[in-house]
Design a protein around this nucleic acid. Structure first.
Length: 418
RNA sequence: GUGGGUGUAGCUCAGUUGGUUAGAGCGUCUGGUUGUGGCCCAGAAGGCCGUGGGUUCAAAUCCCAUCACUCACCCCA
């Protein structure tokens, strides 16, 4: 048996209502905040990601689906969306058409990691990017937007965390301060953290190792060493969030692994999924666009993992998904009326009703049971005495009431059902 | 890449210290008097017990290997 590739999942018809609900809510909420949808190819030139996300990041160094195509070009299945959106923004000069571009997407991403709860190799994210403004209100808007969408799925067990990484110059200064602090404690760190000391020292803060946590307990914090401008920016973001009644907490230890972040970063964490608890993550990236060959432009964005949200919704039983119903099931009472029943069904299908008919010469009882299984609002009984008298019977499946209609007057039935 | 857990019917799972034709619930199908669903009742179909090897008179059960799935580390959405 050929099976789906490790870390990929089929979304079966039974799963679709929940997905549709998420997608619809995202589209509506994005429209409320006036974000416009953008779609980009699932694969890009490899260097877009290595340059955009950062050569040293885990995503680029060991998780990308990269291959050489038949023309000897190195291409990569996108591991995230920001780099692609920025590429499209630069390529199509969107910054010249309007000052502020507010864009959103909902699309599959690919990373070759070991799958576990809330982590797949092909997974889906929705997210937004706002390119062209450094105003704190845009930072806050991103967080509000993400929070409102996730909240609308009924999730309760969530926490919004925010932090500021400042600008690179102050961050570099801070890294030296941190290294000074750690100079006499280096040997106490776990093997993994000793490694991180070189690659990404900021990540020492979210180590799960107890010993590391003790060492980092009293470490100087980045937020205490921000430049004045970044600090002021961060304060304004917090003010707007308070006014918008977003229950956030400042987490000075929130560090994000992608190289492009500057200033504001944030995460929305759920306590209802496994250890992969970040439903959403994002932040500002004021240097990325220039780095990818565009004109210096501030930007900010977030991405949310749909599978993780669905997992949280499942565990909290929070997502209200309407029961699927069909409008009509055509029941054929006499065997010789197969074609007639099909024809009648087709009429209603072509008039925009959702209709099912029997394809297996089933008994009347079996057809009724099937109508019930599909949650048919009505059944139409074709055959017998009534049919001989030119009539067919419409049955309301909720209250069991039956009504006769002349066979030629399908429009009257259509009216009734609508 | 490193650990832990689990593989029995379409699904969720039982299966006692190895011992006859491997079970349940749900689902599916067929019936329960002339032509009508849900509830209820009866019956049926459906399993190389993940795969390969070993121990044994005898293996779903014990041992080894292998594969798959899964959770966690790492990292991230």
């Amino acid at each position: 048996m050929i099976k789906a590739i490790k870390g990929t999942k089929d979304t079966l018809p039974v799963d679709m209502p929940a997905w549709k609900k998420i997608e619809k809510t995202v589209a509506e909420k994005m429209a409320n905040f006036n974000y416009k949808e953008i779609r980009t190819p699932v694969f890009e030139e490899t260097r877009l990601f290595s340059r955009g996300i950062g050569e040293a990041t885990d995503i680029v160094s060991k998780e990308m689906y990269t291959f050489t195509d038949r023309s000897e070009n190195s291409v990569t299945l996108r591991p995230e969306m920001t780099a692609s959106v920025v590429r499209a923004f630069v390529e199509h000069n969107l910054g010249k058409i309007q000052n502020l571009n507010k864009l959103y997407y909902c699309a599959p991403m690919f990373r070759q990691e070991r799958p576990q709860a809330g982590r797949l190799r092909q997974f889906h994210q929705f997210g937004a990017e706002a390119l062209g403004s450094n105003d704190p209100s845009i930072d806050a808007e991103m967080i509000i937007l993400a929070y409102d969408i996730i909240k609308s799925f009924g999730l309760k067990n969530i926490v919004v965390k925010i932090n500021s990484l400042g600008v690179p110059s102050s961050r570099e200064e801070y890294k030296n301060i941190l290294k000074d602090y750690l100079s006499d404690k280096f040997e106490q760190l776990s093997a993994e953290s000793k490694n991180r000391y070189e690659t990404n020292i900021l990540r020492l803060f979210d180590s799960k190792d107890k010993g590391d946590q003790e060492v980092m307990e009293n470490a100087p914090l980045l937020i205490e060493h921000l430049d004045d401008e970044s600090l002021e920016h961060f304060d304004k973001v917090k003010q707007i969030l308070l006014a918008a009644q977003i229950p956030f907490e400042v987490d000075p230890k929130l560090v994000r692994g992608l190289d492009y972040y500057t200033n504001t970063t944030f995460e929305i964490i759920s306590g209802s999924v496994g250890s992969q608890s970040a439903l959403c993550g994002g932040g500002r990236y004021n240097l990325l666009i220039e780095q990818l060959g565009g004109k210096e432009t501030p930007g900010i964005g977030f991405a949310a993992g749909i599978e993780r949200i669905l997992l949280a919704c499942e565990n909290e039983k929070s997502l209200e998904v309407p029961e699927e119903k069909i409008d009509l099931y055509v029941v054929r009472l006499d065997k010789e009326l197969v074609n007639k029943a099909y024809e009648i069904g087709l009429f209603f299908r072509r008039n925009n009703l959702n209709v099912e008919v029997d394809y297996a010469q089933k008994s009347i009882k079996a057809q009724m049971r099937e109508a019930n299984r599909y949650n048919a609002k009505y059944t139409l009984l074709v055959g017998g005495e009534e049919f001989e008298n030119g009539k067919i019977v419409l049955k309301n499946m909720e209250n069991s009431e039956q009504e006769e209609f002349p066979v030629e007057q399908l429009e009257a039935i259509l009216e009734k059902i609508k």
